[in-house]
Design a protein around this nucleic acid. Structure first.
Length: 427
RNA sequence: GGAGAGGUGGCAGAGUGGUUGAAUGCGGUAGUCUCGAAAACUAUUGGGCGUGCAAGCGUCUCGGGAGUUCGAAUCUCCCCCUCUCCGCCA
């Protein structure tokens, strides 16, 4: 959601922001609707003032038992005009809203311009690629031969893009979640939240999934949406609120399943558990002061990176180009982990600063201490991390020649004494 | 699923067609008093939008939407939500 008042004052900045996204200029159209809307509003308010005055006179006259027919006739004469104006106002308001809510966020100044993900810019690369003195296998080979990753069973139950994990790998998935949650809550000041997985239209609208990206979501028979990420419930926690400035930032983390239809991804990543209809993720969300969001964004990315460092996984951080930026984000860092089985880096976390874009949609504000009125908060979200993909990364990076998987040191406290996942554990 | 009750300002809670954006209490803020504080007293205290350099002025807003009326928190209709009892149930 964009601020029409900002567009009024900065039409060129708005249009050039859209241009960086490869979109055509819209400020002229928005301002035209806005101008008409304001003309109508002023005219309508003028009539309302006169009607209210007359009605008060009518009330006073009738109270004294006097005749008020003159005033009543005057109000009646205004009525058609008022109804027509109200109708036109509804149209201009909804036209303006439809325009403002359909336009993606304006990229931050320091986001690199580009067409697509090929134009993303690598910022840093941490750790080293592991070396193997045997032929590396991917997580599918390793997991299936251990009997702990079962795609056939999953397709029997649910079709494609689902997986069943068992035994030590199921446990490792749980261990990874616990490690991440403990890290974010104990060391990074995030409050653990266990939110609903089913949300209403308003929540999905607030974070920007609706109305444009309905086809990416699953919907229930009760008209709820299955969350595609915990960003939706966590961010909407402050929807409609006016927060105390002193309480910012609010930091939430949650471990939840995520559900995605992957409608536009037919034929993409069909092998393995890289792209599933259902996966779990530990999410971080920050609600912060506008002046603090850029720093908070760096901090949040660092929190996600720390998980990978603890797990000893090699990764790199890229900043998304304007062509790869999501709808609600003004700037996004992707963390890509090295997957030996794929011989490439794959996204394992995405940390976005949405500025006031989502806050505007859900009306999440704070009260500045030094000024009257309210201000929109800034919202940020990031995966810390996608658990399913982290499991893949551990499987592939910690594989051994005999087909077993070493348990990373950081996970050992959560693995009940298991140090190596070997075929023997498969039973 | 069945039966009932209810949604009013930060909170509690009045208000069933007339100058009510809304009594009263609590809370918040500022001030008076005080060496300071408490108490007391006084004033002030929602949000959105329009207009204006600003002060201000205007308008909308009593869960949401539609309607009746010169005028709606108050009347009608639809929807949403909360609570209580019963049933069912992890």
């Amino acid at each position: 959601m964009h601020d029409i008042r900002w567009i009024r004052e900065n039409p060129d900045a708005f249009d050039s922001g859209l241009a960086r996204r490869g979109l055509s200029a819209l400020s002229a159209q928005a301002l035209e609707i806005d101008a008409e809307n304001r003309t109508i509003t002023t005219e309508l308010q003028d009539l309302q003032t006169r009607r209210n005055d007359a009605s008060k006179q009518i009330g006073a006259l009738k109270g004294k038992g006097e005749d008020a027919s003159e005033q009543m006739a005057a109000v009646a004469a205004m009525k058609d005009n008022m109804n027509a104006l109200e109708e036109r106002q509804k149209e201009t308001v909804s036209a303006l809203r439809a325009l403002l809510e359909s336009v993606p966020n304006i990229p931050a100044d320091d986001v690199p311009d580009g067409e697509d993900e090929d134009d993303n810019v690598e910022l840093r690369c941490v750790g080293d690629k592991p070396t193997f003195d045997f032929d590396v296998r991917d997580h599918v080979d390793i997991g299936e031969s251990l009997g702990l990753l079962d795609f056939e069973a999953a397709s029997k139950l649910s079709g494609s893009r689902f997986v069943v994990t068992r035994g030590a790998l199921a446990r490792m998935e749980r261990a990874l979640s616990a490690l991440m949650l403990d890290l974010h809550t104990d060391e990074f000041d995030y409050t653990e939240v266990n939110p609903p997985l089913l949300v209403r239209d308003e929540a999905a609208y607030g974070t920007g999934q609706l109305p444009k990206f309905e086809e990416d979501l699953f919907k229930t028979t009760t008209d709820h949406w299955l969350i595609p990420t915990a960003e939706v419930p966590l961010t909407n926690l402050v929807a409609g609120d006016i927060l105390d400035e002193a309480k910012l930032p609010l930091r939430f983390t949650a471990h939840t399943p995520c559900f995605r239809s992957e409608a536009g991804a037919a034929g993409k990543d069909t092998r393995g558990m890289l792209r599933q209809h259902q996966f779990t993720k530990v999410e971080m969300v920050s609600i912060c002061h506008p002046d603090a969001s850029a720093d908070e964004h760096e901090r949040m990315t660092g929190c996600a990176e720390e998980v990978l460092k603890r797990l000893g996984l090699h990764y790199r951080v890229v900043v998304l180009s304007t062509g790869d930026l999501g709808f609600s984000a003004k700037k996004t860092y992707d963390i890509e982990v090295w997957l030996p089985g794929q011989d490439r880096y794959r996204e394992i976390s995405s940390c976005s600063n949405c500025g006031d874009f989502q806050a505007r949609r859900m009306s999440a504000r704070f009260r500045p201490e030094d000024r009257k009125g309210t201000n929109f908060v800034h919202t940020l979200n990031g995966s810390g991390l996608a658990v399913g993909r982290t499991l893949i990364a551990v499987i592939e990076n910690y594989q051994q020649a005999d087909g077993s998987i070493r348990v990373p040191d950081a996970l050992k406290p959560y693995m009940g004494g298991i140090e190596v996942i070997a075929p023997a554990d498969a039973a």
